[in-house]
Every structure is written in structure tokens, then in C-alpha cells.
Write a protein that binds this DNA or RNA. Sequence first.
DNA 1: TGGCCAACCGACCGAACGGTCAGGCACCTT
DNA 2: AAGGTGCCTGACCGTTCGGTCGGTTGGCCA
Lengths: 206, 206
Amino acid sequence: MPEHTGPTEASERIVAAAKRLFAREGYSSVSIRDIAEAAEVSKANVFHHFASKEELYVETLRRCCESARSLIQAFAEDAGREPAEQLRDFVRADLHRALDDPDATRLVLTEAFDANPCRARTLVNEVFGADFQRMTEIFSRGQHTGSWRRDASPALMASLMLAANTFYTAHREVLRQLPGVDFADDPDQYADHVVDILLDGIQKEA
Amino acid sequence: MPEHTGPTEASERIVAAAKRLFAREGYSSVSIRDIAEAAEVSKANVFHHFASKEELYVETLRRCCESARSLIQAFAEDAGREPAEQLRDFVRADLHRALDDPDATRLVLTEAFDANPCRARTLVNEVFGADFQRMTEIFSRGQHTGSWRRDASPALMASLMLAANTFYTAHREVLRQLPGVDFADDPDQYADHVVDILLDGIQKEA
DNA sequence: TGGCCAACCGACCGAACGGTCAGGCACCTT
DNA sequence: AAGGTGCCTGACCGTTCGGTCGGTTGGCCA
């Protein structure tokens, strides 16, 4: 709690309600009254725990960033495996993490939507940076120890994977409406096919 | 003009200001007073031309969808060329169109950000559908007349291209902050490399 | 010349906003 | 028993919101 107070059952309910509402409606569309009602506390109590609406939002966002970051450790030190399999597992895991907590994902993605340089830098440091670097390392290892082509930039390949997962997460409903799309409700199938295409391209006959 | 009135120099300024402000600040953060001031008209005049804030937003969004859709004709009937070159040109053109009118793009992408099924369907019909279908056609032709592998779904490949361009447009500032990214200010280079990877994959030595 | 109507404006309205404040209540320390 | 402290509340504040209204202007047609 940024305020002088400690965490409480009520303050946890406030943050939970704020996360849900901010993610679904957006910062400006949600009033403190809405949050207080959803958390079943008085409006004044919200201001007891958080100095302002802005501070409540920042705290909520901070927690969402934290939970989005926590994937990293799970993938520490699996260096013995094939880069291609590492990549596949990582893309699948990243996609699942994003889909498992849609409110947190949505809040972070909204923040990343053409943010100003300062916020973008913070988000890179807090959330995207580690995953991105991890992915570039997989690509670099594939280039140095495997047979991957060396004229493709690891950063660009990692961006493409990040793009694939972000798009799937952020625009799933649009995907669902697009003709010929049968993978909108099967993230594993999507991740597998994306990695397949990335690895082998589309020109080579399978 | 949805209202009983006709278009005016002032009403055009109102829509222009609304587009700019809605795209940059979001619907709820922008007041009619802000728009009126930016358009240099009175607040009452805004309500003279548009029945409500919501109606002004819908009209603004409608125009943005229109301008996003207008690319299609430019690519009608170039069937004689190589699918690979068609694809490259299309991805480049699509990216440029998005970057040329960032406010319109941002408004449409915000609307597409996990919209409800009804809105998503409208957006697909109004904006994404045509481009998406055009891209799937290129992939299908590549599979039938060229040597492209037939086990990859055209819809998935088109989604991946859409994802690449959307991500570049929506999260360019984040890209700029990511280590090793040197293509954040060179969309043509980005589009070329993305298409290169899609065509040949990353495993084959160049 | 007179009537009409769209374009436009200043002033105003009730509602909702973020935020404040004095005080009640439960619990701890002395 | 007394005082202090953190949690919590209802009532209230000034401001801003979307929207309305009465009225003025200026061009067009009869």
C-alpha cells in the first residue's frame, strides 16, 4: 500500500475491483464510486487506503506487471534442449500466461498502446524486457549452435513472436469473426502453427 | 452528418478535432468542451451538428473506418505477378497506410481491442475483412500456382501478417525501447524482413 | 421587403465526478 | 480505566460533465 496504511481484506478487494473495472472499462470510464461499490466498501475507505484515483491505478498496474513478469523463472536453465523446442514451449507458455489473466494482460497492453517514451521504457523494464531478451537468446543460440540462418535479426524474430501472441490476446474476438479462422479458441494450435511457419517458412514443401 | 443539418466548415473542424482527441486521449477522457475549443466553435454548436457525444464518436469512427478501407482498390487485379512479390507489396502498403494516419489507426485499433462480438463483426465487415481476405487469396494462389507448402492455413498466415503490422503500429514506442531493435523507425525494412522470414523460415541457411 | 430556416452562441441545468472531513467503532498499550 | 491508533463511514464540497434553451445573425426565396 502506497498510503500510510497496511494491506487489509478490504484494500485487497478494492485493488481486485479496480483491476477488473480499469481493465474492462478504462481508467476514465471508471469512477471511484464504481470501484467502491464493486468492492463493497465506502468511497471514503478507498481514499483511506489510496491517496488518489491515480495512485490506486498505479498500484493496480504495478501488481499486474508483477504477475505478468513471474513467468521468467519457470524457464530458467533449460539450456540443454533444442532451441526449436525451447522456442515452441516459450511461445506456448507466454500465450497461456496472457490468456490466464486477461484483465492484467489487458491493463498492461492498454498501457503499452503507443505509450510515451517514458512509460514505454518503464514497461520494457518491468514486463516485456525479460521475456524479449529470453526469446532473443533462444534465437541467438539457434544461430550459433544450431543451423538457423544468421542473416535474420534475433530482435526482429522475437518481435514477430511477441506480435503474434499480443495480437492473439488483444484481438481474439476479431479473429473469431474472420473467415477461415478455426484457431481462435485453440491457443496451443495457434502457437504451434506460428512456430512451424517461423521455423520452416511457407515456401518449402512440407 | 447524422443530424438534420448538412456538413459545414465548422462541422468538419469538429470531426477533425474529435478524431484527434478521441484517438489520443480516449472517449471518456475527452469532453465536448475540449473538442469545441480545439475546433474553435461553441459547445452548443457541437450539439447543433451532433445529437450527442456518442453520435459524434460514431461518426468520427465511421470516417476512420472508411479511410482505412480505401486501400483495397489500389491492389485490384495484379494477378499476373508473383505471389511472393504481391505479398511483400501488400504488407508494405498496409503498414504505410496505418502509419500515414495514426489517429484513424489508433481509433480503429482501440475499438478492435477485445471488442464484444457484435462490434468485432462490424469492424471485420467494415475494415479488416477485405484486407484479410485479400491476403488469404494471395496465400491460396501461392499454394495452388506456386510452390508454397499446402499444410499451412492461409487464414493463419494472414493473421500472422496482420499481427506483425498491427503490433508495429500499436506498440512502436515499446519496440523503440527494446534492446537490439533497429527497425522501429524503418517500416519498409521491418516489412521486408517479416516477409523474408515468413517465406523462407529461419532454419534454412540463406 | 418580409418571412424563414440553418448556423451559431452565452447562459444555464441536474447529475456525477474526485476528494475532504468529523466522527464512530474495535483493539491495543499503559 | 484511559488514551491512542488504524479501519471505516455518511455527509458534504467545489468542479466539471453532457445536454438544453432562448435568442441573434445572415443568406435565400417569394
